[in-house]
Amino acid sequence: MSIELNGINKFYGSNQALYDITATLPTASLTALVGPSGSGKSTLLRVIAGLESMASGRVGIEGRDVSAVPVRDRNIGFCFQDYAPFRHMTVAQNVAYGLRVRKVPRAQIHQRVGEMLERVGLAGFDKRYPSELSGGQRQRMALARALIIEPDVLLLDEPFAALDAQVRGDLRTWVRSLQRELAITTILVTHDQSEAMEVADQLVVLNAGRIEQSGSPSELYDEPANEFVRGFVGPSTSFRGERVRPHALQLTRGGEGEPCAVRDVVHLGFEVRVVVDTNYNGSSWVQLTHDEAARLQVSIGESLTLSLRTGRESHSRNE
């Protein structure tokens, strides 16, 4: 088991930022720490890196207890949200930094930097300065700089937050495939649950300094441990007083279920949202596919029947 976190507590003055964090992150997996801002996800990442101290607890990397090991000896790769490029160094000098610190022979540095730049798609950019790169290129440079020292773990703090939507999507896919290719244990912090679901093998949902739940994206989506997780990992609506996923509901003309009146229909391309009023508990909304909506020919003001789709356990037991 690659990264083991055991009973980590962290304080800022008298405020507790992390409460008894315990988790195991398997080797070569990509784990996303997700949660709203202030949930402690970045703090946890910095504790794992050794950039923050902890009041109590243990951090293990590849079976080695690094709790008392200073940052520089932890052998980790860390990428900051702003990529922290060394602005006065060229791309090649940036990437070579960790190797020069390790006193790797010059010829070998040259060769490995060349290979790494090739791998991240920055071949030919070696003599440029970070200011001459785009956001996405800077991000690749930061990754190359972190990866060249062959770290045991790669830690990414909000790696895509500073990029525009188009580049963000491309880089997500790229980072995911690079991580698989190198089989490097990776932890990524993000506030964006859809990003986390898209790239991660495993999610750890944090809220107010505590782990709410961890597991695979589908576990969290289908069997959220509580309302917070349900609300955080995807949309929810109510049916007969219970919270359910909007796509777990269906609309029919007649049949078993709750009579309802269509208040609004919103077309979002593939997805169509139908907002309905029921006698039971006010309004709900239903997620239909474009085809389903077309088949039903739903129109505003019309009376339909609202029921749970069958054949799939889509709502969790609720107390």
Binding site: A49, L51, P70, V71, R72, D73, R74, N75, I76, G77, F78, F80, D82, A84, P85, F86, R87, Y97, G98, V101, R102, A142, R145, A146, I149
Partner: peptide
């Protein structure tokens, strides 16, 4: 962040 990056890369 630049200084911390240097630290993670092993610099004193």
């Amino acid at each position: 962040t630049q200084e911390q990056t240097a630290a993670t890369l092993g610099a004193s």
